[in-house]
Nucleic acid binder design. Structure first.
Lengths: 212, 212
DNA sequence: GGACATAAGCTAACGCCCGTAAGTTTAGGA
DNA sequence: TCCTAAACTTACGGGCGTTAGCTTATGTCC
């Protein structure tokens, strides 16, 4: 267990007007703890403060409570995921089928590369209960929409090009596709080793996108 | 928050030779806490003891530590799930397609009915880390196999009857099907309300089982 | 039917980490 | 110089897991 970072140099105080920088450092510290510890329970208010090299109460000017830190981490990583997916789609060229696979595989790769992050993003554990006033329902509902929209788009392109058997409900089809991806991504993020064939991802995509 | 059960009647001690009964009561208490609290973090060694109406140290003769309690709960619920799936299949009659849908929907219903239980069964959070000596890898790997075998069987029956396009890899197909079910089940167990069409479950089953 | 061995469970206590409140220090900039 | 943003120190109360040792009821055997 490597908890003691203990910067010998205590930490340079931010300049006036740059106090907000600490906010990002706190998020980064929480993310680092998550990646190392492999468990969201390792991310406590105090452990984050230790990791960031600050005193625990110094967090309060930036975050109302620990769940708020988690929300910030999740929001940041959702944006990162969106960027990854967008870039994967853009780099895949014009072919709709290739773009679909690129986006879906980028999604799966993200989960494989950052299992702990994926778990807090979609595992639904960091919301302690209904009674956390610092986090609104709107915060939660708006979380994945941008990334999901990307998926809807690439799937829609496949339908339009006649590559995929689209039903009349593109949104529903995209939900089903995402659920399949999520099932695999989540399971990989949870267990040490997934049984099953190596190409199970491609199988899911092919089946759920109704590719011809 | 209703934590105080506080049996006014403190609790009748078990008769000689029936000390093992407490083990089941502890599991039941943990399960109750899980269902009520909606969060596995509510299931601590002490809270379980309170719920069961015993002193905290009285757990130790029955369980090595808190993760062991969780493992027992998960094992019990896996058995319960297996039973549910088996009964659903048996009650569905001889038609292979009907049996497949019955088993799959029973799976989804279980998750919908007991979201918290589903989360600890498949959410992978209750294993604190690699260093829990009281739980072996064999414990973890053997967990879902029986229920999964049921799924393999009903899917295989569909292939044999020519209802489904089976590949040469039945196991792999079953894994893919389960991953889709799991994605939906897990998501339902995590978020308050799932967007998407109501029949998304049937869509997943139809697509992933390659039904004709 | 009373002694007594022992299974079943309890009380007390230790040390740890947690979240958070109150008041204080320090350094950047006008 | 001195204001004040930025961050610190100290401290409180509480929950946790776990250890050590004690109590009490139950079934047995004389």
């Amino acid at each position: 267990m490597v908890t003691a970072v203990t910067n010998t140099e205590p930490r340079r105080r931010n300049r006036r007007g740059e106090g907000g920088k600490l906010r990002d450092e706190i998020i980064a510290a929480a993310l680092a703890l998550l990646d190392e510890g492999g468990d969201e329970r390792a991310v406590t208010l105090r452990s984050v403060a230790r990791k960031a090299g600050i005193a625990a109460p110094s967090i309060y000017p930036h975050f109302a409570d620990q769940p708020s830190i988690m929300l910030a981490v999740v929001q940041q990583e959702m944006d990162a995921l969106t960027t990854v997916l967008r870039e994967a789609g853009d780099n895949a060229g014009p072919d709709a089928r290739a773009r679909l696979f690129a986006v879906c595989n980028a999604y799966l790769d993200f989960a494989k590369l950052h299992p702990q992050r994926y778990r807090i993003m979609f595992g639904g554990l960091w919301t302690p209960s209904v009674d956390v006033t610092s986090i609104t329902d709107a915060d939660l509902e708006s979380l994945g929409v941008e990334a999901f929209t990307l998926l809807v788009d690439v799937l829609g392109a496949c339908v339009e090009e006649g590559i995929a058997h689209g039903s009349d409900d593109l949104f529903g089809d995209a939900v089903a596709l995402w659920l399949g991806l999520h099932g695999l991504a989540h399971q990989r993020a949870v267990v040490r080793k997934m049984p099953g064939p190596a190409d199970v991802g491609d199988r899911l995509i092919t089946a759920l996108a109704h590719l011809k």
